[in-house]
Amino acid sequence: MNDSFGRQIDYMRISITDRCNLRCRYCMPDGIIQCDHDEILTFDEIVMICKEAVKLGIVKFKITGGEPLVRKDCADLIKMIYQIEGVEQVTLTTNGVLLKDYLEDLIEAGLRSVNISLDTLNRDKYREITGFDEIDMVMDSISLAVEAGLKVKINAVMHDKNYKEDFENLISIAREHPIDVRFIEMMPIGLGASSHLVSNEELLNELGKRYGEIEFDKVKRGNGPAIYYKIPKFKGDIGFISAIHGKFCKDCNRIRLTSRGELKSCLCYGNEISLKDALKAGDSVKVGRLIKESIAKKPEQHCFEEIENITEKKKMAQIGG
């Protein structure tokens, strides 16, 4: 289905929990209010939503959280979605801590691609950012996922002035392994609004200084807005997702589903459409109609560069990754 601006909406990001086993300071610090377990969507409800979404041309799904792997039987949900006729792809975004424990089940369910959030390779800094000393678990998960044949991408946010060591260390992953490393600009939502913003323009300039011969890759890959650069002798590529300095709204192809059953068509605005009543009534026709309404109301663009006009007041963890 196309929205009112002619964009084809074929991708849905589904948050299956607002809980996480880490406490990243810009996303889910201690004290954030989380919903009760009986408030989050059941797997059957999520599958109903996906079935109606597929009828509208949404055939690619990303499972997110919180941390999706803290929810029991996440792999079963992926398998259930893959069994819907018309579904082309189901992928996963995770912090990687639990990935190796569930890797076999996830692959058996059909998972072929995973994004792992990782902002630093420095043990002390990782503990400072996340609140836990789990860097070894994450690195083990990355290695095992690559060995198992999954397409692995690293998602990193540079969110302080002393980023250059982290930047270089993360880039080295792409040098040594067939892993794409992507740098995401901090969005001014929730606690992100008070974090230091390192622009991807600055990171790209830094990349050029360090490696010189970088080549823009024109090939479209994945479902997101990342642009990629190739570096000679690197096994993986370097990507940039620039929400602020590379506004990509004209190509946006997604809507989001929160763990409580609200549809969001843009992260910037507080507007949302609840599916809960329709789901409780088992009214799949109404669910489909509400998805269609959400797509039709998708705004033309965000206004992250005008913080005073942002109407979304929830924390990122309450919306979904």
Rank of each mutant, 00 (worst) to 15 (best):
E262S: 06
L263Y: 01
S259E: 07
H302A: 07
R289P: 01
I307L: 13
K280L: 15
D277L: 08
L275M: 08
G288R: 05
I273T: 13
E262T: 03
C266W: 09
I273G: 12
K298V: 05
E293N: 14
K286C: 07
D277P: 00
V285Q: 14
E306D: 15
S265N: 04
S284I: 05
A281G: 05
I310L: 15
N309M: 14
Q301E: 12
T311N: 06
A296P: 10
I273Y: 15
I295W: 12
I307Y: 07
E262H: 10
E272W: 07
K286R: 15
C303L: 13
Q301W: 04
C266A: 06
R260D: 12
A281D: 09
K286N: 12
E300P: 04
G261V: 10
T258H: 02
K297N: 08
L275V: 05
Y269Q: 08
I307V: 11
V285C: 12
K297I: 00
T258W: 00
L267V: 07
C268F: 02
C266E: 05
G261T: 11
E306G: 03
E293D: 14
H302S: 08
K280A: 11
R260T: 15
T258M: 03
G282R: 02
I273N: 13
L275Q: 05
V285Y: 12
I310P: 15
F304D: 06
F304E: 07
R289Q: 12
Y269W: 11
G282C: 03
E306C: 06
S284D: 07
R289V: 02
E300V: 08
Q301C: 08
A296C: 11
K292E: 15
K276S: 04
K297G: 00
S265D: 02
L279E: 06
I295K: 10
K276D: 02
K276F: 02
G282M: 05
S294E: 09
R289G: 06
K276W: 02
I291P: 00
A281I: 03
K264F: 06
K264C: 00
C266D: 01
K264G: 00
I291K: 00
E272V: 10
Y269K: 05
D277V: 09
D277N: 10
K264Y: 08
L257Q: 00
G261Q: 12
L257I: 02
I307A: 10
A281T: 04
C268H: 08
L279K: 06
T311F: 09
L263P: 04
G270E: 11
G261H: 11
D283F: 04
K276N: 01
D283I: 05
L263E: 01
Q301H: 10
A296R: 13
D283M: 04
E293T: 14
K264W: 00
I291G: 01
L267H: 10
E306N: 13
C268G: 14
K298Y: 06
L257H: 02
